[in-house]
Amino acid sequence: MQRRNMMKWLISLPPMLFLLVFFAAPSLIMIVTSFRYPGEFSGLAPLSASDIVSGAPSDLYGLTLETYQFFFSDTLYAEIFLKSFAVATASTLICLLLAYPLALLIARSDKRHRNLMILLVILPFASNFLIRIYAWMIILGPESALNHAVNSLLALMGLPPVMLLFSPFAVLVGMVYVHLPFMILPLYTNLEKHDPVLLDAAQDLGANRWQRFWRVTWPQSLPGVFSGTALVFIPVLGMFAVPDILGGTSDILIGNLIKDQFLGTRDWPFGSTLSIMLMLAVIVTAGLAAWLARPRAAASSTST
């Protein structure tokens, strides 16, 4: 037994220590930073220098709730969060719509072809993240064939021309494109396990194709839907590169705001506060997804 214990420490301690130092500690530091004052010129005010913000009675060891008060002082920042949630929801739904038929098709294909088909999904996802965004700069650009086609179509219908690049549309396309495989893979893993006998039974009982899907396949696939949703929704929530490269004059999301606090405004405390708010939003979302997924998963497993 002692040996077993020694083995346990031997293999769990190194990764544990590494992650405590480089993941847990930094997260704590971020939380502490959100309660500090920004420095006069950049970064942070020294912890003891409470004189920088004179007349702050609640000033305890150079800590303050200032950034949180600022965050909640009006609705602006809440609006940015709402907007990010909206973009994340839209991206997730579009991903789901695109991913489901493909995942279903792959899962129902011949076993020999499945691996190739799923590999074809993973391959583009393995090319560089920025390059995948950049590709859309070319496709949606003002001189591109697509842009010309869309605008001549609009002109035929008597509508004013639009710009595809640097627009909310471009941001959504980019978000969907970058995250689509995250939706396809968990869906496929789930759908692949379905027992075709159930569908046959439903057919024998007189269910049409649509009923078979809604009553049999869809409820069973919900765990896959939820894990895919989490894998798309959460990264989109914090994304700044897509709006940064493809977005127009109104496409700012939480990620961009956080980036700006560190690489533009030099306001570390507020940047940390925003990060913590994002983290809370993620935890709530993930909790919600887990809670939604649990009872249904149980239900579907009892039905099989």
Binding site: L76, I80, S250, I252, N256, D260, Q261, T265, D267
Partner: peptide, 19 residues
């Protein structure tokens, strides 16, 4: 600008970009 003005400007800028 000092840090208070910077924070206010950043807020203004955020509003500009959001609206």
């Amino acid at each position: 600008l000092d840090h208070k003005q910077r924070r206010l400007l950043s807020r203004t800028w955020t509003e500009v970009k959001l609206r």
